[in-house]
Amino acid sequence: MTRYGMVINLKTCIGCGACVAACSEENSIILSMIKREAKVQLGTRTDFEVVEEGTFPNAMRVYYHHICMQCERPPCVEVCPTGASYITKDGVVLINYNYCIGCRYCVVTCPYGARYVNKWLKAPDKCTFCYHRVKEGLLPACVEACPTHSRIFGDLDNPNSEVSHLMLKAVSPNQPKGTETKVFIIPP
């Protein structure tokens, strides 16, 4: 079974924002929607947070990524009343806009703040792992755009894939919440 997943390597991320721009371009989200002062309240499908950690001489800048964690047991799907939020056979959490009534229960429930309300759709929106591209054998837009190969995408169940090797070095940000994410992070 294919099980799509992603590893984000914070050791190599340089915080250029190419992933955010590529995502916005691919998914027609206008970049001006991002409010820098309130960037955690996502206006985009993916974003990153600049955090300065430590004190001199061991100080460093870390770029924490925000993206849908594509949980194995997604709370958003559990609470969606109409079944508009669903999980595909290959493990990608998607929204069926024909069924969405815009109650925002899923937005409130997401423990990773990965959903936002899209003004034009009048409904929640989230990262789809660029499902339309992946189905045609392409990589997600953010993965393709990353200049330092910090976002790695592939099949977690394929033992030969790069992502399944890197997954072992990475952590899942969500262990205490028991949602079993399919996005893994290599800490800085």
């Binding site: 799907v77 559990e78 609470v79 969606c80 009343p81 109409t82 079944g83 508009a84 669903y86 069926n96 069924y99 969405c100 009534i101 815009g102 109650c103 925002r104 309300v117 009048k122 409904a123």
Partner: peptide, 17 residues
């Protein structure tokens, strides 16, 4: 609701959860 015109789906959605 953001889509009040679809409110009936909360009772009659084909994929009711």
């Amino acid at each position: 609701l953001k889509r009040p015109e679809k409110a009936y789906l909360a009772l009659a959605s084909p994929a009711l959860n």
